[in-house]
Simulated scan of single mutants.
Amino acid sequence: MERRDDLGEFLRSRRARLRPEDAGLTAYGARRRVPGLRREELAQLAGVSAAYYTRLEQGQSGNASDAVLDALARVLRLDADEHAHLRNLARPRQARRRNAAKHERVRAPLRRLVHAIDEVPTILVGRFGHILAWNRLGHALLAPHYDFAATDRPADRPNCARLVFLDAHTRALYPDWAAKASDNVAYLRVAAGQYHDDPQLTELVGELTLKSREFAEMWAAHPVRGKRHGTQRLEHPLVGAMSLEYESLHLPDDSCVLSTFTAEPGSPSESALMLLAGLTLPTRSQTASASVTSAGDPR
């Protein structure tokens, strides 16, 4: 991915969504050739020259000051995620220091923590949406057709965006598929601002663009949102409809996100989640019996 193209696409997409009157400008009757604010109008409102803004949008200025970026964010009405994304795109030297390793590694204590959680579906998601670990209930909820041990194999790890755009089972899981798909694209856009020339990300975006027209269209719109919390509706093949609350906890030292899914107490969704646990998880007695058998195996 070329950073100067990303910066230009992002700025143009945000200019296009603002009408002149939204920014306090007078819109005259003449037909405008481009939607939204013109470059000259945005530059005027941000207090910079039109020539300088043009160079910035074309990726020819890599030293934009905080004041300039803050002014552009204010005029374009960027939210916190978009503002941070603008800084990442406009500061390529700083972002390059954050390139990812070839394969993400999960610390053993963190993996044990995920596996130790019994009653709450839990997954650990990497910087590009790869599922690095999941507990039994998280696997049963989101991708029971996948091998549970796939998260332990870097080459085979399921990826959230691949599942959403390329996997028929996952598409059927989400009644609000378009919203879920947009969230995944927005998460990858955030990653692209932080790790713009990472080969894993470049390969992933290229694959999804070639294989999914819907991904290509959403990617071109340049959505930017981080993972935090919200409500997720699911239509599970085993237990039916559920509405779950998800919480995404960012682990900065590991550059990954721990996501949990819970249901409102006493709700039909809680009953469905309990039923899923009963259908898919081994009982404590079975687990204990397996442990004793393993311990007594002479091999």
Results as ranks from 00 to 15, higher is better:
127 R>W: 04
200 Q>D: 09
261 F>S: 01
123 I>R: 00
74 R>C: 10
144 P>C: 08
238 L>R: 14
110 L>N: 04
90 A>Q: 03
159 N>V: 02
31 R>L: 15
250 H>R: 15
229 H>R: 15
56 L>F: 03
127 R>E: 07
148 F>P: 02
115 H>S: 07
275 L>Y: 07
154 P>D: 08
204 L>M: 07
177 W>Y: 06
37 L>E: 04
215 F>N: 01
263 A>F: 10
135 N>W: 05
280 T>E: 13
110 L>K: 06
85 H>W: 06
173 L>A: 03
248 S>T: 07
266 G>A: 11
217 E>G: 10
150 A>N: 04
106 V>Y: 00
237 P>N: 11
104 E>P: 00
63 N>P: 02
113 L>C: 14
104 E>N: 01
101 A>D: 13
17 R>K: 13
95 A>T: 08
230 G>L: 07
122 T>Q: 07
220 A>V: 13
185 V>L: 03
98 R>P: 01
193 G>V: 03
248 S>L: 05
151 T>M: 02
281 L>I: 15
38 R>V: 14
1 M>D: 12
165 F>S: 00
246 Y>G: 01
2 E>F: 10
207 E>P: 01
139 H>Y: 10
50 A>N: 12
150 A>Y: 03
176 D>L: 06
249 L>Y: 13
36 G>Q: 04
153 R>Y: 03
289 S>C: 14
289 S>I: 15
153 R>L: 05
29 G>Y: 08
95 A>S: 14
211 K>Q: 15
158 P>E: 05
10 F>M: 06
257 V>R: 00
105 R>Y: 08
280 T>N: 10
150 A>P: 03
46 A>D: 02
198 D>G: 00
240 G>P: 06
225 R>Y: 10
163 L>S: 00
76 L>N: 02
253 D>W: 09
293 T>P: 05
204 L>N: 02
252 P>C: 05
92 P>C: 08
92 P>N: 03
83 H>G: 07
14 R>H: 15
191 A>S: 08
293 T>Q: 13
259 S>D: 05
15 R>D: 00
67 A>V: 15
94 Q>C: 03
184 N>E: 08
66 D>G: 11
96 R>F: 09
55 R>Y: 11
263 A>I: 15
103 H>N: 11
265 P>S: 14
43 A>M: 09
207 E>G: 07
111 R>E: 10
162 R>V: 06
269 S>E: 07
146 Y>S: 05
179 A>K: 06
114 V>Y: 02
114 V>R: 01
61 S>Y: 09
187 Y>V: 06
160 C>A: 09
157 R>P: 01
10 F>P: 00
32 R>C: 13
208 L>T: 02
196 H>W: 12
288 A>D: 12
